[in-house]
Nucleic acid binder design. Structure first.
Lengths: 248, 248
DNA sequence: GAGTGGTCTAGACCACTGG
DNA sequence: CAGTGGTCTAGACCACTCC
């Protein structure tokens, strides 16, 4: 029973939109190998008939799958299955916790320090808050399978997460805490990445042998409205960490 | 004459689709400051009336702008202007030439070597070609405003770009050459990034002082169909290069 | 209850590809 | 020429928010 002959029945009553069900069905046909890479899928009009939905609804499914890189079109010819099963659909914003889980490593943290400080002027400007207003600073040692991996220092306007320092920041993901307790959902980030030598303090905290560089990352994170809500400085051991990035 | 009262006239005869013209008009209203960040734009039904096009066409414009991060919606409330003018719409695939131009630096190259070699087995597998088949290898020193910046080694299946070595690879962008002469348009890439120490050879070629690390990037590039077409190894001077990445 | 975005329909015309 | 994806229309119903 394949997509090419008889499409699976859709659940019209479901809260899952029709186009999402179509997407899932086509995605399964691809993953199951029923339609091989570089083979044509049925035309939009054929799919419309097979699923019993309008062509516009089919298109909504296809356009999203094209955006995710699993299909591509040749105008006037048809829609084809793309090859790359390689990676995540796009470059996604991930927390340290998610990042490690995706690599199959057990993440843990040690709190190095957490305090309030008046916002320095450049940082205040980037975060769109008054200079000198309260900033939460959380400094953590990050471990993967118990091995020292990185030092991460987060800065957040205290007004956005009052009382955040009273939570257990070693056991819980900061991003989950912000989302669940403060309705602060972080959606975008802008990072700069460079290779550098560690400071003396970083070298000691990460127990690094001499001569090993660090991957230094500065990250501004913002919510869906585009308001910058967090600034993070990280230093990852160069001998233990590789960053993966997908481009388009 | 603003978007909020009277929308600009659309050119129905133009080859530019209506939704793209609507997108441009709304984009201008945002950039001109007519609609400030976090202010509501007219509802989809209002825009439909203002522009004299159907609501679905308006939605096509809005959905794209939401995907690009310049608008966001609150269901049941309205569509709002996002804040982030910060960066490029998404993480885009760029060549060295484009990358430098975006930074306002003058890119140049020195060819260090260009040859054919039989594909080693792992690379052949990644590029989906037979092991031992011909691979083009191009090694270039990259400069920005005349300063040594990086060493880049590209590997391409010779079958995809026969005779590519006869072109002037110092003066021309390889990606433009591939696109214009070989109809090979590279669209996606998967990179791994790490901080490392340079090899002795890299240190000499880049004229690096001792103790400075490099940003080492491995990149697999593919076309729109998802076929991996290129493998690039790069080493950027850690003291002169920062990588910018946007996440979502 | 009125207005909003989210979803869906059943048509239509266009430019482009192939035989 | 018939078939394809790309664009566009004029409606419709739903869940949600705010008053």
């Amino acid at each position: 029973m394949g997509l090419l002959e008889a499409a699976p029945a859709l659940d019209r009553g479901s809260s899952v939109p029709i186009f999402a069900q179509v997407k899932a069905a086509i995605g399964e046909a691809i993953e199951s190998g029923e339609i091989q890479p570089h083979r044509r899928i049925p035309s939009e009009r054929e799919l419309s008939g097979l699923f019993g939905v309008s062509r516009m609804t089919i298109r909504q499914a296809l356009v999203e799958m094209i955006g995710e890189g699993s299909l591509y079109t040749r105008s006037g010819k048809g829609t084809y299955v793309a090859e790359r099963k390689i990676a995540q659909p796009l470059q996604r914003l991930t927390s340290f916790t998610q990042d490690m889980a995706a690599r199959g490593l057990r993440p843990s943290s040690r709190l190095l320090g957490a305090d309030l400080l008046p916002a320095p002027i450049e940082l205040a400007h980037a975060l769109s808050i008054p200079a000198g207003s309260e900033l939460v600073r959380i400094r953590r040692l990050r471990l993967a399978d118990g091995q020292h991996l990185a030092i991460e220092t987060s800065h957040l306007p205290h007004a956005r997460c009052p009382g955040v320092l009273q939570h257990d920041l070693e056991q819980h993901s900061l991003y989950e805490l912000l989302r669940d307790r403060y309705a602060l959902e972080l959606a975008f980030a802008k990072q700069t990445i460079e290779a550098a030598n560690p400071t003396e303090e970083e070298r000691e905290l990460l127990e690094m042998p001499p001569g090993v560089p660090v991957l230094r990352i500065h990250r501004f994170t913002s919510n869906r409205a585009g308001e910058v809500c967090e600034f993070v400085q990280s230093a990852y051991r160069g001998d233990r960490y590789q960053l993966n990035v997908n481009l388009e």
